[in-house]
């Protein structure tokens, strides 16, 4: 059993927490997420042009790159995290260009060496996934695909087909950090997706509060929280870990007691 499948095989919904690598003291912030009860860590690779992200994560990308974060730094953060937390699944999320710059094989093997379990690439749809996905699979890393409200039943099989670890359902047609989708629409879409796959479905985009997380936890296998955590890093700097631990505990509590 992989770390990812273990995280999703519990009798409750998994809490997936996102932070941008290199924005603040990432090691301390990630530890705080784990202490607060995060089941899966999603580590954002900073990119100059985060087209699918709203203002909060855009700014985190800019802060991180402004502080000089390189791909080597992101991989080092992952490696050190793996050293401190041998059992917590770690997923890299980012955009295609930094992932393919030195070749997809290079990236897949470097991520593997860093103890990464899965990779989410925002701007490589199934239609263009003939290099990165295979390289990741070859290296034993789960390529995690995204489904959205616009993914109709005709496309869904193609999206689900290459996804491993879990499927990320983007609850709103929009960018990160915006308003949450109606729970009815989330529920309907998650059951639609679950009819075409056995892999776990995690729901993200627009999830900010424990109440929202709890509500989604009743209908999905995972809940992803990003912008709300990233905003705490922006606001509290060196004091972010305490705030992150607090919010993560509340989220975790809500998710654990949801069903």
């Amino acid at each position: 059993m992989t770390r990812l499948s273990a995280a999703f095989s519990k009798s409750r919904t998994a809490l997936v927490c996102f932070l941008t690598a290199g924005d603040g003291d990432t090691a301390a912030n990630l530890d705080a997420l784990v202490e607060g009860g995060a089941d899966v860590i999603e580590l954002g690779m900073p990119f100059t042009d985060p087209m699918a992200d709203g203002p909060a994560i855009q700014k985190a990308n800019i802060r991180s790159l402004g502080a000089g974060t390189t791909t080597a730094d992101v991989l080092r953060i992952a490696t050190e995290f793996r050293g401190r937390h041998p059992d917590v699944p770690l997923v890299l999320m980012g955009y295609a260009n930094p992932m393919i710059r030195r070749g997809p094989e290079w990236f897949a093997s470097a991520a593997k060496d860093a103890g990464v379990d899965g990779v989410i690439c925002v701007d490589i749809p199934p239609e263009e996934d003939d290099a990165l996905g295979p390289a990741l699979r070859e290296a034993g890393i789960a390529p995690i695909r995204l489904a959205t409200p616009t993914t109709d039943d005709k496309r869904l099989p193609a999206v689900v087909d290459g996804s491993e670890g879990f499927l990320y359902y983007v609850a709103v047609a929009g960018i990160t950090g915006m308003q949450q989708a109606a729970i009815e629409s989330i529920e309907a879409n998650v059951s639609r997706i679950k009819r075409s796959t056995d892999i776990p479905v995690a729901v993200g985009f627009g999830v900010r509060t424990p109440e929202q997380a709890g509500e989604i936890a009743r209908v999905a296998d995972g809940v992803v929280v990003g912008s709300a955590l990233v905003e705490l890093v922006a606001e509290h700097g060196a004091n972010a870990p305490a705030k992150l631990r607090e919010l993560t505990s509340a989220l975790s509590q809500a998710v654990r007691t949801a069903r």
Partner: peptide, 12 residues
């Protein structure tokens, strides 16, 4: 070339 876009835009 190609279509390197987020899934939301693919159907579009």
């Amino acid at each position: 070339g190609g279509r390197y876009v987020a899934e939301t835009l693919m159907p579009l």
